[in-house]
Amino acid sequence: MRYRNYTMINKEASPLDKGPGSDEDTQYSIKFGLMQTEEIEERIWDYIDGLSSPDEKSVIEQLIADNREWQIKYRELLAAHQLLDASELEAPSMRFTKNVMEEIARHQVAPATGTYINKNIIKAIGAFFLLMIAGFFIYVLGQFHWSGLSGNSSGSGGVITQYGTSLANNMDKLPWGKVFSSTYVNVFIMINTVLGLFLLDMYLHRRKEKAKVNL
């Protein structure tokens, strides 16, 4: 069914009104033919792989039985499928298992990742970043001259729209250079960075300790 609909859609969109035998016509036919073949192949592959729905399966079986083009394509793809299916696995050397087991004797099963990753540390790192972002936004919002934005609107929607427009207008005017060269911002970023490094150090130290215990 999908195939028939596809054909109809493409027929409607075909540039046939440009006159028969034109270059565009030929190109269209080639392109359309290729697309048709791809569509057929895709559906036959699904059928061979057992991925078609029962309805689709019976439609394809019918098409293979009635249509010569489908028959040829089906045989071709089935041969390719059988060839791939029958290809043999490669074998490693005879000593492979022995080599692996000898190597494994020097190792031991590591504890599951979940047991040595402390969720509190992950939460702390998340909180750290959220705090940093929140702090930054609070500082930026603190730079606005809010008094210039109020008093002109009757409804709350109007206020929000006005704020939005004013924010967009004022963003360009913000002294970004000053924001990042401000002592307060620098101190804030520095404290957060030190805290972040401290948390990371704690986390790595714990991992190292656990690894020592396991050895």
């Binding site: 490669e90 490693p92 050397s93 492979f96 080599n99 692996v100 190597e103 494994i104 190792h107 031991q108 099963v109 590591a110 504890p111 599951a112 990742t113 047991t115």
Partner: peptide, 19 residues
């Protein structure tokens, strides 16, 4: 190369069995 990598894969699998 394939044999060496395959060997490493089994060792890695062994070490990560708990996962």
């Amino acid at each position: 190369d394939a044999e060496e990598i395959s060997q490493d894969i089994f060792v890695k699998a062994f070490r990560s069995l708990a996962d």
